[in-house]
Design a protein around this nucleic acid. Sequence first.
DNA 1: GTAATGTTTTACCAATCGGTCAAATTATCG
DNA 2: CGATAATTTGACCGATTGGTAAAACATTAC
Lengths: 214, 214
Amino acid sequence: MAIPRAAKTQRRTRIQEEKEERILEAALDVFSSSGFRGSTIDQIAEAAGMSKPNLLYYFRTKEAIHRQLIDRVLFTWLEPLRAFDAEGDPEAEIRSYIRRKLEMARDFPRESRLFANEILQGAPHIEDELKGPLKELVDEKAEVIRAWARAGKITGCDPYHLIFSIWATTQHYADFDVQVRAVLGQESAGEGRFEDAARFLEQLYMDGLRIRAD
Amino acid sequence: MAIPRAAKTQRRTRIQEEKEERILEAALDVFSSSGFRGSTIDQIAEAAGMSKPNLLYYFRTKEAIHRQLIDRVLFTWLEPLRAFDAEGDPEAEIRSYIRRKLEMARDFPRESRLFANEILQGAPHIEDELKGPLKELVDEKAEVIRAWARAGKITGCDPYHLIFSIWATTQHYADFDVQVRAVLGQESAGEGRFEDAARFLEQLYMDGLRIRAD
DNA sequence: GTAATGTTTTACCAATCGGTCAAATTATCG
DNA sequence: CGATAATTTGACCGATTGGTAAAACATTAC
């Protein structure tokens, strides 16, 4: 007799752990490239190499898979911002924040796209977490940046829009990858674009375009 | 006898024009917030205030609606970049390019999201146009920027990544609107964030953060 | 070993999907 | 007006959707 799904006993089986991981991995593939509504359980099941009812034995609904995936991504996605250190050197902190976000765009593009898909569609599943934990974290770091400006270590600027711009420019290389590749052409087929981007962004944030009057 | 659908006679009826417009308008709403696969003909039909078969009288397939929408958006979306003038003053040109892109994000967020959705899902319908016309346009403008750098009017930098970063930072305010609003909180409920963003981006691109060594 | 539990499969369901068809209705034009 | 063409509707289709029921099968604990 099976009272399954998150098991009667609190303990999770080895098989449970393995299969759940495989499902989440497959679901990340599917959700990140088709969005929630555009993805089907069958696609995920096939990608995970199991039958649909078997998949539904581990996750009761499509939403349950998605929610767990989103929760994970949301957490790891904010790691770099959490690491932002008020005591550190402004230049080094901003530089390393940009670098880390860019590395994440390079190494975890699916996670970035999953998140982008969710936000694009109005964040129906995570609005609360955006207005709560996310906002609080950004508020905190914005205050750090403001303090740096007050101390004269950095030009005064809107810290929120600074953070937005770093998010936008770095995640762009994951979310709009197809476009970036199309525009750069195949001559730059490798991962060189990430190094070029890093160089460019570093220069942009450190010095701007340094436009000289004629 | 109806041989309808893009009409037997070359001329388009008044009704045809009106209804097609209404359908495209409704489809923009639906596609931009649910993506292609996530949207249904029924949703579009309802939003357009007509029955599904009636809608399908004007557009044979769901894809046909989507294609026409994408084509339109792709064209108008590149207007600002096309206006980028080689003969103009670098500072004024870049400044006005940023301003125009930001205005488009503010005034046509659905169009931006439609495009973002398409790219996010791998641009299955427009890969050719990205690799063709889009790439050519960007190549041309990149050369303009390079010429400015050679002439010493602007710091040397990778022109492609400069363009990417302007795209990313401006479209962010349309595509990630929900997130931006959530983080800024409701105190900034109005459209003030666009003015703040404009100020910030102008400063960023003109001077960078002007970080001073301790 | 065997009994209890955990896992997988087969067969299935109602709802929704994109799309068709033919008949009914409305607009246009001489 | 009448006729012809354009538009709209309701009824329908096969395929796919998210999800279920129950029995077959495998694993674990004793």
